[in-house]
Amino acid sequence: MNASAWHMLLEGAWTTVWISAVSIAIGVVAGLVIALIRLARIPIVDQLLVLYTSVARATPLVTLALFIFLSAPDLGLDLNRSVAGILALTLNTTAFNAEIWRSAFRNFSREQSEAAMATGMTPWVTFRRIMLPQMVITSLPGLVNEMSFLIKGSPAIAVIGIVDLTRVTNRISAVTYEPLPPILVAGVLYMAIIGCLVWLQRLAERRANRLAM
């Protein structure tokens, strides 16, 4: 592999990282919002969200990415590839994150919020200062695990023509006629990225143990 092949690989890695990072950031917040809405148990809205979660968890990312990219013009939307890719990854990861947040809510002890109310905190301050920080800490290991899954699923966006870390190996071997080296290097780069997340997850787990009283 020559210098330009390395350069292309790193560019592909960058594409994978930034598209995943944007999807993760939106997905974590959107998951929390959905979990909060589901707490309110609004009829119809609740059922729709249950349906969304169930379908999103069962739909392959490749299929979802194609669906969004190809049918956007039908719906009068003009999405470029990157936006379609981010949308697909986000719709998928949000469903998983919502479940992680929801279980943190369910397991939150009522006594904790009672202690906060007793000191005169309003429900909003109680949520912001007592509930949310604890839920972030307990959810973080699960959320980071889901981030690893998102990176592992991200090659799906290659199907709509985004040149990510996986797709770029095709581009390189089309010139060099040696497919094996770029694929192996891409594999190592993926392992480096996901290795970081696994390490982060361990840190998060150690912090979460502090809450176990």
């Binding site: 009672e114 202690a115 007793a118 000191t119 005169g120 905190m121 301050v125 604890q134 502090r210 009283m213």
Partner: peptide, 18 residues
Amino acid sequence: AKVRAQTGMVFQGFNLWP
């Protein structure tokens, strides 16, 4: 909440914020 702030409560299970 304002009236509650006039009282201080100590619980059986401590309920410190971990």
